[in-house]
Design a protein around this nucleic acid. Structure first.
Lengths: 192, 192
DNA sequence: ATAGTACTTGAGTGATCGATCAACCAAGTA
DNA sequence: TACTTGGTTGATCGATCACTCAAGTACTAT
């Protein structure tokens, strides 16, 4: 999981996996018939741990449903910085790198995206009263996801989280604008 | 350029490049001392053609500055569909795949992102009167970029442009909300 | 005619790629 | 004791990886 995360799928050789896990080739191929099947197992694992590793900590840490979105984004921000811009989103990395080279992997990545997006949507649903009637929460949750993935991409290319912060700031401003009664606007120097 | 675009950097072998361009190994290495230097040359080329391939057509096609942003995004949308979800954004692909493995490439990718973002910012600047005073156009242009990159990522994973469309719809709604006098909101079934 | 520069040719380098396989081993069952 | 099951070991496979280089060709300048 970690090697695919840090280096990508193609750039990670089976030999390196074997070396770092201290598993010999024959043993490796006893459990995984191919490198691709290992990848699929990794993606299954991501799906398994999504709630416990992501949703639960967020819900635990933040009560306000809308604010949970920004706590979630904050987790990724922290990961980028603490890894010195090495680690982005493992799902996003693999999705872009693989394209449709492995349709099975693509399907799983798509399911992971949807699970993540659904989590955000469920946060929004809790706060549905604050938004205008008929608000498209599914679209907004997708928007949160694109902001996160795009923000990480820019942060890594720039080796600086400012671009990530800018995108998140705009997202926040948007959600504020939509919520009844709030009047925040995108201003240059404000931190909120 | 095309092979790196379709397959990524690592997945594209020098031998394949040589075969498809009908250039023999020795000849190839006469012009490019290494595969990485070819990549850098490719990135330089992207920078060269950015205006003529992207900005000019957009400006030509659409007069309204804010609407130009959506024309631009429409170009990417079209590319995704016409390539049957094979081709995303070449810069985004390479940025995520390479990380900081090649610092020189990362720098150039970062410069390309900034050029693209600056283009969007210049569109917004033309329409600055429509936005509240003090609006952070730089942040908004970053937001447009993250929406594009994230949207493409989801579209490819999902083999469907709907997610891309949803993100763009929200972006449009945001820009509408910010512009004085407009009152659009995010609604489920509106195509706007 | 000669020399030099620019570029092409293609065989070949060692290293690494993902993957295979026969032999081996420990624990369990009949 | 004989045999099966579940797993380990590590040498080895052919293919491909990025890359090299000595030799050859085409063109220009002197």
């Amino acid at each position: 999981m970690e090697l695919f995360w840090r280096q990508g799928y193609v750039a990670t050789g089976v030999a390196q996996i074997q070396a770092e896990t201290r598993v010999l080739p024959g043993s490796f191929y006893f459990f995984f018939k191919s490198k691709e099947l290992l990848l699929l197992a990794v993606l299954d694992r991501y799906m398994e741990i999504l709630n416990s590793a992501l949703r639960d900590p967020v819900v635990e840490k933040t009560r306000d449903p809308v604010e949970r979105i920004f706590t979630l984004l904050g987790f990724y921000r922290r990961q980028i910085r603490e890894s010195r811009f090495e680690l982005g989103c493992p799902i996003g990395n693999l999705a872009l790198e693989l394209g449709n080279r492995s349709p099975a992997a693509r399907e799983k990545l798509n399911a992971l995206f949807d699970e993540w997006r659904g989590m955000v949507q469920s946060f929004l649903a809790e706060a549905r009263d604050r938004f205008p009637p008929g608000t498209d929460f599914k679209a907004i949750s997708t928007f949160v996801l694109t902001t996160m993935e795009g923000g990480i991409m820019l942060a890594r290319a720039n080796q600086d989280v400012r671009q990530f912060d800018r995108a998140v700031k705009e997202l926040r401003n948007y959600l504020n604008l939509m919520q009844t009664g709030k009047k925040a606007v995108s201003r240059k120097r404000s931190r909120t």
